[in-house]
């Protein structure tokens, strides 16, 4: 579970930013309100991947 502490990870931490890597799972990008409404309507749990281009 290698994780990066936000407070400590200034420049060295992380994985690269990849915007194109999302074909398999239909991610909603950066819109909690919309994703939450959809999860409620579809009666499904909401999976959240919190990341940053580090």
């Amino acid at each position: 579970m290698k994780f990066r502490m936000i407070a400590l990870a200034i420049l060295l931490a992380g994985t690269a930013a990849i915007a194109s890597a999302r074909q398999v799972l239909p991610f909603v990008e950066n819109d909690y309100t919309r994703a939450l409404a959809r999860a409620k309507a579809d009666n499904l749990p909401l999976f959240v991947d919190a990341w940053a281009p580090w």
Partner: peptide, 19 residues
């Protein structure tokens, strides 16, 4: 997240990416 083995989970969650 690009792995096809995850395809069977696609309709079981709503997926949200937070930068």
């Amino acid at each position: 997240f690009t792995d096809k083995a995850l395809g069977r989970y696609a309709g079981r969650f709503v997926w949200l990416s937070i930068d």
